[in-house]
């Protein structure tokens, strides 16, 4: 009499509906069989003892609420162990964290919405979508998804970005320049600046006087250029730039022009006089903390 065929457990289906076995021995040796229902313990033990990974019989989504909490806690322990302190704090506070790479930084934590900010270039930000295969089958706790993406990102970034779907792209604005007023002569520029100042528009007046200073410096009249550049710098420091411009960048440009001319002049008493004159011109119309703070800042930057 021949020995009874045996069954070798292969795997359970992810949805828990049944499991696959391989028939060992008998006329159907090697055939595969699908058996409905959960696998019996003795088959599972045999599989594990034989050096086989047997996944849990139920998906994460099919667990009880208590079981899901425990699974998520287990997954989070692993995820947190892989993060540095700053990332851990961020994850605990927000559920997400930034991953720093050589080429930029990527934020993990919101499914289908990974924020990628590359360093340099004209690309400011992209929203990417990258997921582990089978993520929508409810197989693992949410924290495992981040562990999956985190390790892939660090170990094989080229793989990560090769499959990423780009959902949105933002580009950096083109660099702004101070207006040159190329069509205006020196006198017209000076008049324009005075008109703006009289109207209380310190921003426009400062830019016009800055353009005048650059024109004078280019023509070799550096001392006169300095007399315009210093008041222009104080004006833009005092003023509120329009919302549509990069005020900080333009301020730096105007102040840098004044600073370079001042360094060439190399006469601190004279520069202090210029700052006084500029200060007094503004104070005639406005005397407030903003002017005093701007004067302090300008003096410091001209001396640096």
């Amino acid at each position: 009499m021949s020995a009874r065929p045996g069954l070798r457990f292969l795997e359970a289906t992810p949805d828990g509906r049944g499991y696959l076995v391989e028939i060992q021995g008998g006329p159907h040796d090697g055939d595969l069989l699908f058996v409905p229902g959960p696998p019996p313990a003795h088959l599972l033990e045999g599989a594990v003892a034989g050096g086989r990974y047997v996944p849990p019989p139920r998906r994460y989504d099919d667990l009880t609420p208590t079981e899901r909490r425990e699974a998520q806690a287990t997954a989070e322990r692993l995820l947190l162990a892989l993060l540095d302190e700053g990332q851990q704090a961020d994850y605990r506070a927000t559920g997400g964290f930034w991953v720093e790479l050589a080429e930029g930084r990527l934020r993990l934590g919101t499914l289908y919405h990974l924020i990628w900010r590359p360093h340099g270039g004209d690309l400011a930000e992209q929203v990417l979508c990258v997921v582990p295969e089978g993520h929508d089958e409810g197989l693992t706790p949410p924290a495992d998804i981040w562990t999956n993406l985190l390790l892939t990102l660090h170990a094989t970034p080229e793989q990560f970005f090769a499959v990423a779907n780009v959902l949105r792209t933002s580009r950096r604005p083109a660099p702004q320049r101070t207006p040159a007023y190329a069509s205006l002569g020196l006198d017209a520029l000076a008049q324009l600046a005075r008109r703006h100042y009289r109207a209380g528009d310190w921003w426009a007046g400062g830019l016009a006087e800055h353009a005048l200073a650059r024109r004078l410096a280019t023509s070799g009249r550096r001392r006169t250029a300095t007399k315009c550049a210093v008041p222009a710098a104080l004006s833009v420091l005092v003023a509120d730039p329009p919302a549509e411009v990069d005020g900080a960048f333009l301020r730096d440009t105007v102040v840098d022009t004044a600073a370079s001319l001042v360094r060439a002049a190399d006469s601190p008493p004279w520069v202090a006089t210029l700052v006084d004159l500029a200060d007094r011109r503004i104070e005639v119309q406005r005397d407030d903390r903003r002017v005093r703070a701007a004067r302090t800042e300008l003096t410091a930057r001209l001396r640096s």
Partner: peptide
């Protein structure tokens, strides 16, 4: 992290098994 292609019983650390990634 580094990818692992072969089993090394003397590995100093931990292996984590994940799934391949795809665009979403």
């Amino acid at each position: 992290t580094e990818p692992v292609r072969a089993f090394d019983p003397d590995l100093d650390g931990e292996i984590v098994w994940v799934r391949p990634v795809q665009g979403g």
